[in-house]
Design a protein around this nucleic acid. Structure first.
Lengths: 273, 273
DNA sequence: ACCTGAACACCGTTCAAGT
DNA sequence: ACCTGAACACCGTTCAAGT
């Protein structure tokens, strides 16, 4: 009975039953302990949730581009013990990209990893709020993203803007996706069934059918591989948009010279090389 | 005592005290009524929250590009009665754009309006989940966005991808922004104070200071107008990224011809002109 | 048709008390 | 140092009963 075991049980319960059903009393029962003994290790429910959030953030750092990731195990691609124990050896590797690869490849890898983490743990996104000051693992992930953006050719000020854009976009995508997945599950339907129903209710509006065709036409389109495939393509397309936008901005930047508007002294691109 | 009055009181309470403090009992007290009489008009708390969500979605439709917006008042730019009554004459007009303007201008207007609505009502974003099947006002807004995207020169399939991208990105931006604003308020700090504190805790990590300078350097940078100004610029920059990405994709599309990969028969761009 | 009171099965958290 | 029981002030929702 220590903080790690409590955090692991919290993550497992949150994964299985969702944020709204999680309670201190439910957790205590799971740990075969009275309701209030958890409070010896944790000040408040919110503190515990922050610990759980930090634990799943660590999933994004298994194996790494640079050694700046987590305090323990500087280089070896070993997943944190508590996470493996809780989720049952789901070792996500999508946030890992070849160290010297093109920034586009690495950006896609980081974004995909972040997104899939949010989908794996739908309870995490409402807890993330601002990506400021929420644990060392989140900061380490942010560092990796910044390292990638340094190679885009954008000015430092543009890099900061792009950092924010990528973070928030992936957050939005993963959060909505997570909501949808959970809603399907709680309705006892497959994602395709739920999507078909939703389309059905939208087909009551005639302009919708005019734009996209009837439900049967959408599902019958050749190459339509279901909602999950659709979402995969939407995400890929959105990343294409971002990458194309970054390339355009980087072109502008190099045409006008390396200096941005916002940044002050201490150009990090120059300092790092 | 009817559904409209209940919905209006709900929106007002949610705005003032937040989603977590809202309860049926609290609402009943506000309406000077016993706890359970609300259940005569509303089946469940979740149903009521959906009503509230639909009510604030209507803010995005005041005044419009086309007459496809809300059932009442087809064209006149009049805000819905219940919203005006509840928020005290905050009549947002940001989602309105000149009808025949460039798609870039109209896209920015729609995105800004959506974002500011989310910030005005931070409780709305956790409720939005998927943008599918949540009320007629949301669908009408989606229609307007589609109408704008038709003018980008993208293929219909690309338009669908961009629709998803814009929606989810703005959602992510507004949600995180709303979280931050609320967190500052509940900590009793101004946004700049909170931001300074957060930077201070991040300055404990040396690579952060190496990249961006110390807190004093960041706040002292000429042209730094505080967090809110920073966020404004981040949002504008992110929209620039999206617009540039859309332009790049549209260029590809017109170079390869109008047909996309995903769409079936019934090309809406051709049908609408 | 509309509202109420009492009740049920929950919450997070405190606090004095046990070992 | 670690855990417990009882208690406080809350929840959403049901249901029989009032007018």
């Amino acid at each position: 009975m220590d903080r790690e075991r409590i955090t692991a049980a919290t993550v497992r319960l949150l994964d299985e039953e969702g944020l709204s059903k999680f309670s201190m009393r439910r957790l205590a029962a799971e740990l075969d302990v009275t309701a209030m003994s958890v409070y010896w290790y944790v000040d408040t429910k919110d503190d515990l949730l922050e610990l759980a959030l930090d634990a799943v953030m660590a999933e994004l750092l298994t194996g790494g581009t640079e050694a700046e990731a987590a305090p323990p195990e500087p280089a070896a691609p070993v997943a944190p013990a508590e996470t493996v124990a809780s989720t049952g050896a789901v070792a996500p590797t999508e946030a890992v990209a070849p160290a010297g690869a093109d920034w586009r490849v690495r950006l896609r890898a980081l974004a995909s990893g972040y997104r899939s983490m949010i989908v794996r743990h739908p309870w995490a996104s409402p807890l993330m709020g601002s990506f400021l000051n929420i644990g060392p693992h989140s900061q380490a992930f942010s560092c990796r993203l910044r390292a990638v953006l340094r190679d885009t050719g954008m000015s430092p000020a543009q890099q900061l803007g792009a950092l924010s854009a990528v973070f928030r976009f992936v957050y939005g995508f993963g959060t909505i996706e997570g909501h949808f997945v959970r809603r399907c599950a709680s309705a006892g339907m497959s994602q395709d069934e739920y999507y078909r129903d939703a389309l059905g209710s939208m087909s009551e509006r005639p302009e919708f059918v005019e734009s996209f065709g009837s439900t049967e036409e959408i599902f019958g389109t050749q190459g339509f591989g279901g909602v999950e495939d659709l979402r995969e393509r939407d995400f890929a397309f959105a990343l294409d948009l971002l990458v194309a936008g970054i390339e355009a901005q980087a072109g502008k930047a190099s045409a006008r010279g390396p200096a941005g508007e916002r940044t002050a002294d201490g150009d990090p691109a120059a300092a790092r090389g």
